[in-house]
Design a binder for these strands. Structure first.
Lengths: 145, 145
DNA sequence: CCGTATCCCGACGGATACTG
DNA sequence: CAGTATCCGTCGGGATACGG
Protein backbone atom coordinates (compact mmCIF):
# COMPACT_ATOMS: atom_id res chain seq x y z
CA UNK A 1 0.00 0.00 0.00
CA UNK A 2 1.53 3.23 -1.17
CA UNK A 3 -0.87 5.55 0.60
CA UNK A 4 0.79 7.47 3.38
CA UNK A 5 -2.16 9.30 4.91
CA UNK A 6 -3.00 7.50 8.10
CA UNK A 7 -6.46 7.01 9.52
CA UNK A 8 -5.80 9.56 12.20
CA UNK A 9 -5.01 12.26 9.71
CA UNK A 10 -8.37 12.04 8.03
CA UNK A 11 -9.99 14.59 10.33
CA UNK A 12 -7.12 17.01 10.02
CA UNK A 13 -7.30 16.73 6.26
CA UNK A 14 -11.01 17.44 6.31
CA UNK A 15 -10.50 20.57 8.34
CA UNK A 16 -7.88 21.72 5.89
CA UNK A 17 -10.30 21.23 3.02
CA UNK A 18 -13.06 23.09 4.79
CA UNK A 19 -10.87 26.04 5.50
CA UNK A 20 -10.36 26.48 1.79
CA UNK A 21 -13.83 25.78 0.48
CA UNK A 22 -16.29 26.87 3.14
CA UNK A 23 -16.54 30.37 1.74
CA UNK A 24 -19.85 30.69 -0.05
CA UNK A 25 -18.57 33.24 -2.52
CA UNK A 26 -15.72 31.05 -3.66
CA UNK A 27 -18.13 28.19 -4.14
CA UNK A 28 -20.21 30.37 -6.40
CA UNK A 29 -17.29 31.74 -8.35
CA UNK A 30 -15.80 28.30 -8.23
CA UNK A 31 -12.10 27.91 -9.05
CA UNK A 32 -12.69 24.35 -10.14
CA UNK A 33 -15.42 25.30 -12.57
CA UNK A 34 -13.64 28.39 -13.85
CA UNK A 35 -10.06 27.21 -13.99
CA UNK A 36 -9.63 23.48 -13.62
CA UNK A 37 -12.40 22.57 -16.03
CA UNK A 38 -10.37 24.40 -18.62
CA UNK A 39 -7.37 22.12 -18.30
CA UNK A 40 -9.50 19.01 -17.86
CA UNK A 41 -9.84 18.51 -21.56
CA UNK A 42 -8.19 15.72 -23.47
CA UNK A 43 -4.84 17.38 -24.23
CA UNK A 44 -4.00 20.35 -22.00
CA UNK A 45 -2.16 18.39 -19.34
CA UNK A 46 -0.14 16.56 -21.97
CA UNK A 47 0.79 19.83 -23.64
CA UNK A 48 1.83 21.54 -20.42
CA UNK A 49 3.97 18.65 -19.25
CA UNK A 50 5.52 18.23 -22.68
CA UNK A 51 6.45 21.89 -22.71
CA UNK A 52 7.77 21.52 -19.19
CA UNK A 53 10.14 18.85 -20.41
CA UNK A 54 11.72 20.95 -23.11
CA UNK A 55 11.52 24.67 -22.40
CA UNK A 56 10.74 25.91 -25.93
CA UNK A 57 9.08 23.76 -28.57
CA UNK A 58 7.91 24.31 -32.12
CA UNK A 59 4.50 23.26 -33.33
CA UNK A 60 5.68 20.12 -35.05
CA UNK A 61 7.88 19.16 -32.16
CA UNK A 62 4.81 19.25 -29.95
CA UNK A 63 2.91 17.18 -32.49
CA UNK A 64 5.55 14.48 -32.36
CA UNK A 65 5.86 14.55 -28.60
CA UNK A 66 2.17 14.40 -27.78
CA UNK A 67 1.23 11.00 -29.05
CA UNK A 68 -2.08 10.82 -30.86
CA UNK A 69 -3.01 14.48 -30.96
CA UNK A 70 -4.38 15.90 -34.18
CA UNK A 71 -3.22 19.11 -35.77
CA UNK A 72 -6.52 20.73 -35.04
CA UNK A 73 -6.61 19.82 -31.37
CA UNK A 74 -3.03 20.90 -30.83
CA UNK A 75 -3.90 24.31 -32.22
CA UNK A 76 -7.06 24.58 -30.13
CA UNK A 77 -5.29 23.42 -26.98
CA UNK A 78 -2.40 25.82 -27.42
CA UNK A 79 -4.74 28.74 -28.10
CA UNK A 80 -6.66 28.06 -24.88
CA UNK A 81 -3.46 27.81 -22.88
CA UNK A 82 -2.22 30.99 -24.47
CA UNK A 83 -5.45 32.75 -23.65
CA UNK A 84 -5.20 31.71 -20.04
CA UNK A 85 -1.67 33.04 -19.84
CA UNK A 86 -0.10 29.62 -19.43
CA UNK A 87 1.96 29.49 -22.62
CA UNK A 88 3.46 32.10 -24.88
CA UNK A 89 3.43 31.92 -28.63
CA UNK A 90 6.33 33.52 -30.43
CA UNK A 91 6.12 33.83 -34.20
CA UNK A 92 9.26 34.15 -36.29
CA UNK A 93 8.39 35.74 -39.63
CA UNK A 94 10.56 33.46 -41.68
CA UNK A 95 10.03 31.18 -44.60
CA UNK A 96 9.20 28.51 -43.78
CA UNK A 97 7.52 29.97 -40.71
CA UNK A 98 8.58 29.02 -37.22
CA UNK A 99 6.50 29.29 -34.07
CA UNK A 100 7.85 28.58 -30.61
CA UNK A 101 5.75 27.76 -27.61
CA UNK A 102 6.95 28.14 -24.06
CA UNK A 103 5.45 28.01 -20.60
CA UNK A 104 4.99 31.31 -18.79
CA UNK A 105 5.81 31.71 -15.12
CA UNK A 106 2.17 31.02 -14.44
CA UNK A 107 2.39 27.95 -16.63
CA UNK A 108 5.43 26.68 -14.82
CA UNK A 109 3.74 27.08 -11.46
CA UNK A 110 0.85 25.04 -12.84
CA UNK A 111 3.29 22.52 -14.25
CA UNK A 112 4.62 22.02 -10.76
CA UNK A 113 1.14 21.03 -9.58
CA UNK A 114 0.59 18.73 -12.54
CA UNK A 115 3.87 16.97 -11.89
CA UNK A 116 2.67 16.19 -8.40
CA UNK A 117 -0.57 14.86 -9.81
CA UNK A 118 1.25 12.74 -12.37
CA UNK A 119 3.56 11.37 -9.74
CA UNK A 120 0.51 10.42 -7.72
CA UNK A 121 -0.99 8.75 -10.78
CA UNK A 122 2.21 6.87 -11.48
CA UNK A 123 2.62 5.73 -7.90
CA UNK A 124 -0.96 4.52 -7.58
CA UNK A 125 -1.62 3.24 -11.07
CA UNK A 126 -1.15 -0.37 -10.07
CA UNK A 127 -3.49 -0.07 -7.13
CA UNK A 128 -6.12 1.57 -9.32
CA UNK A 129 -5.78 -1.11 -12.00
CA UNK A 130 -6.17 -3.75 -9.32
CA UNK A 131 -9.28 -2.03 -8.03
CA UNK A 132 -10.74 -1.89 -11.53
CA UNK A 133 -10.24 -5.57 -12.11
CA UNK A 134 -11.54 -6.47 -8.70
CA UNK A 135 -14.70 -4.50 -9.45
CA UNK A 136 -15.68 -7.20 -11.90
CA UNK A 137 -14.90 -5.48 -15.15
CA UNK A 138 -12.59 -6.73 -17.88
CA UNK A 139 -10.22 -4.32 -19.64
CA UNK A 140 -8.74 -2.15 -16.93
CA UNK A 141 -6.34 -0.24 -19.10
CA UNK A 142 -7.20 1.97 -22.00
CA UNK A 143 -10.61 3.19 -20.84
CA UNK A 144 -12.70 4.84 -23.50
CA UNK A 145 -12.01 8.14 -21.76
CA UNK B 1 2.26 38.41 -9.41
CA UNK B 2 1.61 35.33 -7.35
CA UNK B 3 4.03 33.05 -9.14
CA UNK B 4 6.95 32.07 -6.98
CA UNK B 5 9.03 30.04 -9.40
CA UNK B 6 11.91 32.24 -10.44
CA UNK B 7 13.52 32.28 -13.84
CA UNK B 8 16.54 30.47 -12.52
CA UNK B 9 14.48 27.54 -11.33
CA UNK B 10 13.09 26.81 -14.74
CA UNK B 11 15.93 24.54 -15.73
CA UNK B 12 15.87 22.67 -12.45
CA UNK B 13 12.14 22.15 -12.85
CA UNK B 14 12.64 20.81 -16.36
CA UNK B 15 15.18 18.29 -15.16
CA UNK B 16 12.77 17.17 -12.49
CA UNK B 17 10.06 16.64 -15.08
CA UNK B 18 12.37 14.70 -17.36
CA UNK B 19 13.44 12.40 -14.60
CA UNK B 20 9.85 11.33 -14.16
CA UNK B 21 8.73 11.09 -17.75
CA UNK B 22 11.72 10.07 -19.80
CA UNK B 23 11.00 6.38 -19.43
CA UNK B 24 9.60 5.13 -22.69
CA UNK B 25 7.53 2.41 -21.10
CA UNK B 26 5.75 4.78 -18.77
CA UNK B 27 4.98 7.05 -21.68
CA UNK B 28 3.32 4.15 -23.42
CA UNK B 29 1.37 2.98 -20.41
CA UNK B 30 0.74 6.59 -19.63
CA UNK B 31 -0.46 7.48 -16.12
CA UNK B 32 -2.14 10.58 -17.45
CA UNK B 33 -4.08 8.68 -20.06
CA UNK B 34 -4.93 5.80 -17.79
CA UNK B 35 -5.59 7.54 -14.51
CA UNK B 36 -5.96 11.28 -14.79
CA UNK B 37 -8.26 11.19 -17.79
CA UNK B 38 -10.61 9.28 -15.57
CA UNK B 39 -11.00 12.08 -13.06
CA UNK B 40 -10.96 14.76 -15.76
CA UNK B 41 -14.66 14.45 -16.35
CA UNK B 42 -17.17 17.06 -15.39
CA UNK B 43 -17.90 15.96 -11.81
CA UNK B 44 -15.23 13.68 -10.30
CA UNK B 45 -13.13 16.42 -8.76
CA UNK B 46 -16.21 18.05 -7.28
CA UNK B 47 -17.32 14.74 -5.81
CA UNK B 48 -13.94 13.93 -4.30
CA UNK B 49 -13.51 17.33 -2.71
CA UNK B 50 -17.07 17.33 -1.44
CA UNK B 51 -16.49 13.97 0.19
CA UNK B 52 -13.24 15.28 1.57
CA UNK B 53 -15.11 18.03 3.32
CA UNK B 54 -17.51 15.76 5.13
CA UNK B 55 -16.10 12.28 5.71
CA UNK B 56 -19.25 10.24 5.03
CA UNK B 57 -22.11 11.48 2.87
CA UNK B 58 -25.37 10.02 1.67
CA UNK B 59 -26.47 10.15 -1.94
CA UNK B 60 -28.85 13.06 -1.45
CA UNK B 61 -26.37 14.96 0.63
CA UNK B 62 -23.94 14.76 -2.25
CA UNK B 63 -26.67 15.90 -4.62
CA UNK B 64 -27.27 19.01 -2.56
CA UNK B 65 -23.57 19.75 -2.07
CA UNK B 66 -22.52 19.38 -5.68
CA UNK B 67 -24.32 22.23 -7.32
CA UNK B 68 -25.84 21.45 -10.68
CA UNK B 69 -25.18 17.71 -10.87
CA UNK B 70 -27.97 15.46 -12.07
CA UNK B 71 -29.05 12.25 -10.39
CA UNK B 72 -27.75 10.25 -13.29
CA UNK B 73 -24.31 11.84 -13.39
CA UNK B 74 -23.87 11.56 -9.65
CA UNK B 75 -24.52 7.84 -9.90
CA UNK B 76 -22.17 7.43 -12.84
CA UNK B 77 -19.44 9.49 -11.21
CA UNK B 78 -19.64 7.62 -7.92
CA UNK B 79 -19.58 4.25 -9.68
CA UNK B 80 -16.41 5.20 -11.54
CA UNK B 81 -14.75 6.43 -8.38
CA UNK B 82 -15.81 3.28 -6.59
CA UNK B 83 -14.42 1.14 -9.38
CA UNK B 84 -11.08 2.92 -9.16
CA UNK B 85 -10.94 2.33 -5.43
CA UNK B 86 -11.30 5.99 -4.56
CA UNK B 87 -14.61 5.86 -2.73
CA UNK B 88 -16.46 3.17 -0.82
CA UNK B 89 -20.16 2.56 -1.06
CA UNK B 90 -21.85 1.20 2.01
CA UNK B 91 -25.47 0.10 1.70
CA UNK B 92 -27.70 -0.07 4.77
CA UNK B 93 -30.60 -2.43 4.07
CA UNK B 94 -33.21 -0.25 5.69
CA UNK B 95 -36.46 1.30 4.58
CA UNK B 96 -36.07 3.88 3.29
CA UNK B 97 -32.68 2.76 2.03
CA UNK B 98 -29.51 4.56 3.03
CA UNK B 99 -26.21 4.56 1.21
CA UNK B 100 -23.08 6.19 2.53
CA UNK B 101 -20.13 7.21 0.43
CA UNK B 102 -16.69 7.79 1.83
CA UNK B 103 -13.20 8.33 0.51
CA UNK B 104 -10.79 5.42 0.78
CA UNK B 105 -7.18 5.91 1.84
CA UNK B 106 -6.33 6.05 -1.83
CA UNK B 107 -9.08 8.61 -2.32
CA UNK B 108 -7.78 10.75 0.48
CA UNK B 109 -4.29 10.71 -0.92
CA UNK B 110 -5.76 11.87 -4.22
CA UNK B 111 -7.81 14.47 -2.39
CA UNK B 112 -4.60 15.88 -1.05
CA UNK B 113 -3.35 16.43 -4.59
CA UNK B 114 -6.62 17.96 -5.70
CA UNK B 115 -6.56 20.39 -2.81
CA UNK B 116 -3.18 21.60 -3.96
CA UNK B 117 -4.53 22.02 -7.45
CA UNK B 118 -7.57 23.88 -6.20
CA UNK B 119 -5.45 26.13 -4.09
CA UNK B 120 -3.40 26.90 -7.15
CA UNK B 121 -6.56 27.64 -9.10
CA UNK B 122 -7.86 29.89 -6.35
CA UNK B 123 -4.60 31.78 -6.02
CA UNK B 124 -4.21 32.34 -9.73
CA UNK B 125 -7.81 32.77 -10.80
CA UNK B 126 -7.53 36.54 -10.98
CA UNK B 127 -4.40 36.39 -13.08
CA UNK B 128 -6.03 33.91 -15.44
CA UNK B 129 -9.16 36.02 -15.76
CA UNK B 130 -6.99 39.01 -16.53
CA UNK B 131 -5.14 37.03 -19.20
CA UNK B 132 -8.43 35.93 -20.75
CA UNK B 133 -9.73 39.46 -21.01
CA UNK B 134 -6.44 40.74 -22.31
CA UNK B 135 -6.55 38.12 -25.04
CA UNK B 136 -9.39 40.01 -26.64
CA UNK B 137 -12.31 37.88 -25.64
CA UNK B 138 -15.38 38.97 -23.73
CA UNK B 139 -16.84 36.75 -21.01
CA UNK B 140 -13.94 35.48 -18.97
CA UNK B 141 -15.93 33.70 -16.30
CA UNK B 142 -18.32 30.84 -16.80
CA UNK B 143 -16.83 29.30 -19.92
CA UNK B 144 -19.09 26.86 -21.67
CA UNK B 145 -16.64 24.16 -20.62
C1' DC C 1 5.81 24.79 -41.69
C1' DC C 2 1.90 26.18 -39.39
C1' DG C 3 -1.93 26.61 -39.35
C1' DT C 4 -7.58 27.39 -40.80
C1' DA C 5 -12.01 25.60 -42.71
C1' DT C 6 -15.42 21.97 -43.03
C1' DC C 7 -17.63 17.95 -42.24
C1' DC C 8 -19.23 14.65 -39.25
C1' DC C 9 -19.57 11.01 -35.76
C1' DG C 10 -19.79 9.36 -31.15
C1' DA C 11 -19.82 10.32 -26.31
C1' DC C 12 -21.03 13.09 -22.56
C1' DG C 13 -24.35 14.37 -20.03
C1' DG C 14 -29.22 16.73 -19.11
C1' DA C 15 -34.37 15.82 -18.62
C1' DT C 16 -37.79 12.93 -17.54
C1' DA C 17 -40.20 8.91 -16.04
C1' DC C 18 -40.26 4.80 -13.58
C1' DT C 19 -38.86 1.11 -9.59
C1' DG C 20 -37.47 -1.53 -5.06
C1' DC D 1 -34.30 7.37 -0.54
C1' DA D 2 -31.49 5.86 -4.01
C1' DG D 3 -31.23 4.66 -7.68
C1' DT D 4 -32.32 2.60 -13.20
C1' DA D 5 -34.06 3.22 -17.93
C1' DT D 6 -34.68 5.83 -21.91
C1' DC D 7 -34.54 9.47 -24.94
C1' DC D 8 -32.09 12.93 -27.10
C1' DG D 9 -29.51 17.33 -27.79
C1' DT D 10 -24.86 19.26 -27.65
C1' DC D 11 -20.16 19.52 -28.64
C1' DG D 12 -15.55 17.66 -28.18
C1' DG D 13 -12.60 16.17 -31.22
C1' DG D 14 -10.99 13.18 -35.47
C1' DA D 15 -10.29 13.20 -40.67
C1' DT D 16 -9.58 15.59 -44.50
C1' DA D 17 -8.66 19.33 -47.56
C1' DC D 18 -6.98 23.69 -48.33
C1' DG D 19 -4.24 28.39 -47.56
C1' DG D 20 -0.19 31.88 -46.40
Amino acid sequence: MEVTIGKGEARATREKVNSHFSDGKKTFNCPITNVLDRISDKWSIHAIITLGKADKLRFNELMKSIHGISQRMLTVTLRNLEQDGIVTRKIFPEIPPRVEYQLTDLGRSLLFQLIQLSEWATSNMDEIFAAREKFGNTNSSLPGR
